[in-house]
Amino acid sequence: CHSECLGNCSQPDDPTKCVACRNFYLDGRCVETCPPPYYHFQDWRCVNFSFCQDLHHKCKNSRRQGCHQYVIHNNKCIPECPSGYTMNSSNLLCTPCLGPCPKVCHLLEGEKTIDSVTSAQELRGCTVINGSLIINIRGGNNLAAELEANLGLIEEISGYLKIRRSYALVSLSFFRKLRLIRGETLEIGNYSFYALDNQNLRQLWDWSKHNLTITQGKLFFHYNPKLCLSEIHKMEEVSGTKGRQERNDIALKTNGDQASCENELLKFSYIRTSFDKILLRWEPYWPPDFRDLLGFMLFYKEAPYQNVTEFDGQDACGSNSWTVVDIDPPLRSNDPKSQNHPGWLMRGLKPWTQYAIFVKTLVTFSDERRTYGAKSDIIYVQTDATNPSVPLDPISVSNSSSQIILKWKPPSDPNGNITHYLVFWERQAEDSELFELDYCLKGLKLPSRTWSPPFESEDSQKHNQSEYEDSAGECCSCPKTDSQILKELEESSFRKTFEDYLHNVVFVPRKT
Rank of each mutant, 00 (worst) to 15 (best):
T213P: 02
S338H: 06
C105Q: 01
L293W: 06
C105N: 01
T185H: 15
P284C: 03
Q314L: 14
E148T: 11
N141D: 06
T371C: 07
R291A: 05
E236N: 15
S119L: 12
L298Y: 01
N141Y: 15
I357S: 01
D315S: 10
N248K: 13
S319K: 06
N263C: 08
S116N: 14
I271L: 07
I129M: 04
Q382T: 11
S260F: 02
L180A: 11
I134L: 13
I135R: 02
N142L: 11
N387I: 09
Q199T: 09
E368Y: 11
R165A: 14
N198D: 01
L280S: 01
D249H: 03
D328L: 03
T113F: 03
H106K: 04
L186T: 08
C228M: 03
G240R: 10
D292R: 05
F220L: 09
G139Q: 15
Q203F: 03
C105K: 01
A251W: 15
W286P: 05
L227G: 00
W207I: 05
N198H: 00
K112T: 04
S239A: 11
I214S: 03
L108C: 03
I379C: 13
Q203M: 10
A385P: 13
Q403M: 08
V397A: 11
K277S: 06
R176T: 12
D328P: 15
L298I: 06
S132Q: 02
D377M: 07
I378R: 03
W352M: 13
Y300P: 00
P391S: 02
T254A: 08
K350R: 14
K112P: 02
E302M: 13
E122Q: 05
E302A: 14
R247V: 09
P394K: 11
V359K: 00
V170I: 12
R124H: 15
E264A: 03
N211S: 12
N320M: 07
N190Q: 12
S208Q: 12
G313H: 14
P225H: 10
H106E: 10
K226Q: 11
T309A: 10
H222S: 05
A168G: 03
P394H: 03
P287H: 10
D312T: 13
Q121E: 08
W352F: 08
D312S: 08
T353S: 12
D328G: 02
A259N: 02
Q258S: 14
G217F: 01
S398G: 14
N211K: 14
T371F: 04
A374D: 01
P330F: 12
L147A: 04
E368M: 11
K409P: 04
K234S: 10
L108Q: 06
I135Y: 02
I214A: 07
L151P: 00
P288Q: 09
W207R: 02
Y380M: 04
F268D: 00
E146F: 04
R291H: 04
L219R: 01
A385K: 11
N130C: 02
K103P: 07
K103N: 05
D206K: 15
Q258M: 05
G240N: 04
E302Q: 11
G131L: 00
N211L: 10
G110Q: 14
E156T: 10
A145S: 10
K112N: 02
L196I: 13
E187P: 09
V397P: 14
N307Y: 03
P284M: 13
L180T: 10
R291N: 12
G348H: 05
S116C: 15
N190Y: 07
P304Q: 03
F221L: 10
L227S: 01
D326S: 05
D206N: 09
K103Q: 13
E109K: 10
N200L: 09
N255C: 11
I404A: 03
Y191M: 05
L293S: 04
S401Q: 07
L298H: 00
A303Q: 14
H233F: 05
R244G: 10
R281V: 03
S208A: 15
S338F: 10
A303C: 02
G183L: 01
G110N: 04
D367Y: 14
P329H: 02
Y285F: 05
N211M: 12
D292L: 11
N136V: 12
T353L: 06
T364A: 15
G139C: 08
I154C: 04
R202G: 06
A149F: 14
R370L: 06
G295W: 14
E155H: 14
K226N: 13
F290Q: 03
P351M: 02
G110E: 13
R138E: 04
V238L: 12
G373N: 03
S171Q: 13
A259G: 09
V397F: 12
